[in-house]
Design a protein around this nucleic acid. Structure first.
Lengths: 194, 194
DNA sequence: GTCTATACAGCGATAGAC
DNA sequence: GTCTATCGCTGTATAGAC
């Protein structure tokens, strides 16, 4: 249950964020949200038109927060590969999975253009962001010009998302760490000795 | 709806396989299964104790089938990297996602040790199977001895699973293909010229 | 083996009082 | 803004006839 000292509308959004992360959209009922937010039926339907609109607010906030965190890490110091490594290795609640990525497996989210839009936007942004870092690494002479920025960036994001899948399947964070180290080793071998 | 000419029990399992793939476990109701299998309530509860046992039969069959297909591809001709490329590039219903991998995002599947077991087993098997192929490639002098088989194999499986996530997010198979080509390019650069 | 009837809880939303 | 009452529908399963 969300216990921050904030107003009801805020508690509803934060509780929904948590529940979407833990259970996804189909498996999260308005009742569950209300209990977690310590709000009544009336409150929820006063502040939002329904489950979908509330979920949209929650998803958009999660996406915004994630963008800020990723920007901070990728804008940090170090070479391109070092910054990518920092991003991939940052602390995560691995067994809970990615709060945005998991929504791609939810039938009701995928069926709703409204809810799918922020999910699509988040990954399009992330792939582009990482492709720019890879391009920068090539321009700086850190990475071989033979490296294709777009494909490499997409593979990196995929390893991350797939790492969550493997960790959850194993109920163990080890496969996630192993996948990350696997792609980083491959990336490092693309470096140009200087 | 499943329309093969087989008995009711069989139709129930096949319909469940399809629905689990398309909607996952929580979002698949007994009613939906019965309609797809063209079977009544009574039939379903005669052949199976309930939704969970039926899902288990469906998941186990999907996993077995997948193992057979993967074995056939990885046992084929070509170098280690070529066989991995063949496996990664085989035709897939990319936008539907992985029928096993998607279950890791289902709260009820993860909460049930019974249902989680075949999912865990499938990925443990696959990671080991690919690690063996990588090891073979090193032993054959095709890949650099610096390549770590376990981490590399796990990264490959992760790219696949993450590729599905990105494709579904984009409602487009392009990110899947891009991720695959990205990791293959990195893998190929690990080759030892002969 | 398959059918219909029934059960009871939960879902997602609305109504109207306070 | 929040509460309680109510609604029609679905989820999952059981009972008992055929």
């Amino acid at each position: 249950m969300y216990t921050g000292v904030v107003d009801t509308r805020e508690r509803l959004i934060e509780s929904t964020r948590t529940l979407l992360w833990e259970r996804g959209y189909v498996a999260t009922s308005p009742k569950l949200i209300q209990q977690a937010a310590d709000a009544g039926q009336g409150s929820m339907y006063h502040h939002f038109t329904g489950k979908e609109q509330l979920a949209l607010a929650a998803i958009e906030r999660t996406a915004e927060e994630m963008r800020r965190q990723i920007d901070a890490l990728l804008d940090g110091p170090g070479t391109a590969v070092e910054r990518i490594a920092t991003y991939l290795r940052r602390e995560r609640e691995v067994l809970k999975g990615c709060p945005i990525g998991r929504l791609t497996q939810d039938p009701d989210v995928m069926a709703s253009p409204t809810l799918r839009e922020p999910v699509e936007g988040m990954f399009a942004w992330l792939r582009g962001r990482l492709a720019d870092v890879v391009s920068g690494g090539i321009a700086a002479g850190e990475l071989s010009p033979g490296v294709e920025p777009g494909a490499t960036a997409t593979a990196i994001v995929a390893v991350l998302q797939g790492g969550y899948v493997l960790a959850r399947a194993a109920a163990d964070t080890a496969p996630f760490d192993q996948a990350i180290e696997g792609i980083l080793a491959l990336l490092r071998s693309q470096g140009i000795a200087r």
